[in-house]
């Protein structure tokens, strides 16, 4: 019932521009791929040299029985390594480990209208949304902001849906955001994906114009991991390193520490552990605000540490 890891094979790589590549993935095992809805992303494990990176990429097309996931990756400079690996080393036929799609940027079926705003390569999840919403016959409008030299490229990516309600704007000043957000009918949801500055600007403008929070959606891959840290076990002795992509609970379990758990989602209280030293970073819904502020307890199934070291009563 619980499926998490999938082996992907690279089926095709296409160069869209000197800095953008379109990657097509398929199942490496022949098993059908789970549904990849518009807005979903997949995390891929990339082995670049001796470093292991986990990068998340939005799907650019809904995948529903197509047997493939499509991504666009921009070469970033300076890169954390992932985009250089994808651009310079990844080849057709390569097998990558990854997770099933996870959707933190879905569209809302309750909406009367969907307004999509993209900036640069932030267009990727919006391409999937546009395809899905058009197919459903939903009311949708898209505005893409692009550097002058990329207007032609994005216009071409959007060509299948060309029309008055799909527009590419060159340059930062190309779109009158205030006018756009002011004329949207009741029941509109806005979805924005792009550089943080753009997402902040759209969100800030929408809030200032009186849009409620629940109608403003920014692309997010969520924050499941974080900075690595070390746990010292006061009672049993020993230290456990918590990596960037695993939970404290997983790390403890992998190290053979008998740590209680039930929900594994920060709700039930089963994993409550006393903190003797160090500063926890609370991500649970169990502890009260006062308990969190006291720093005396932590829920290892979801929470992490602000300090390099946490000493636990385990």
């Amino acid at each position: 019932m619980i499926q998490r890891d999938i082996a992907y094979r690279v089926r095709a790589i296409e160069s869209l521009s000197p800095t953008l590549k379109r990657i097509v993935l398929e199942s490496a095992t022949g098993d059908p791929l789970p549904v990849g809805a518009a807005g979903a992303h997949i995390a891929l494990t990339l082995k670049c040299g001796d470093r292991i990176l986990r990068n998340s990429y939005s799907l650019i097309a809904p995948s529903d029985g197509t047997g493939r996931y499509e991504l666009i990756v921009r070469r970033t400079d300076p890169s954390r390594g992932g985009s250089h690996f994808v651009h310079d080393e990844l080849t057709v036929g390569a097998v990558l480990a990854g997770y099933v799609p996870h959707n933190l940027f879905p569209s809302f079926s309750h909406a009367r209208k969907h307004l999509l705003i993209g900036g640069g390569v932030g267009i990727t999840p919006l391409l999937a949304h546009l395809a899905a919403l058009r197919r459903e016959g939903a009311r949708v409008e898209l505005h893409q902001l692009a550097a002058a030299e990329e207007v032609a490229l994005f216009t071409q990516l959007l060509a299948p849906w060309a029309g008055d309600d799909v527009q590419v704007h060159g340059g930062r000043e190309g779109l009158d955001l205030e006018a756009l957000l002011s004329r949207q009918p009741l029941g509109t949801h806005v979805y924005v994906c792009g550089p943080a500055a753009l997402m902040d600007r759209v969100e800030g403008m929408a809030v200032a114009l009186g849009w409620p929070d629940g109608r403003i959606h920014r692309e997010s891959f969520g924050a499941s991991g974080g900075e690595p840290f070390t746990v010292r076990l006061a009672r049993s002795g020993g230290e456990v390193r918590v990596g960037p992509d695993e939970s404290m609970l997983q790390a403890l379990e992998n190290a053979g520490v008998a740590a209680p758990s039930l929900c594994r989602g920060g709700a039930c209280g089963e994993c409550l552990t006393r903190v003797l030293e160090g500063e926890p970073e609370h991500r649970d819904h169990y502890l009260t605000a006062e308990e969190k502020a006291s720093g005396q307890f932590v829920m290892p199934c979801v929470s992490r540490a602000h300090s390099d070291m946490l000493v636990l009563d385990l």
Partner: peptide, 10 residues
């Protein structure tokens, strides 16, 4: 009552 939720593993 408790939040007795857990993963639905097989």
């Amino acid at each position: 009552y408790a939040v007795n939720l857990e993963p639905h593993f097989a």
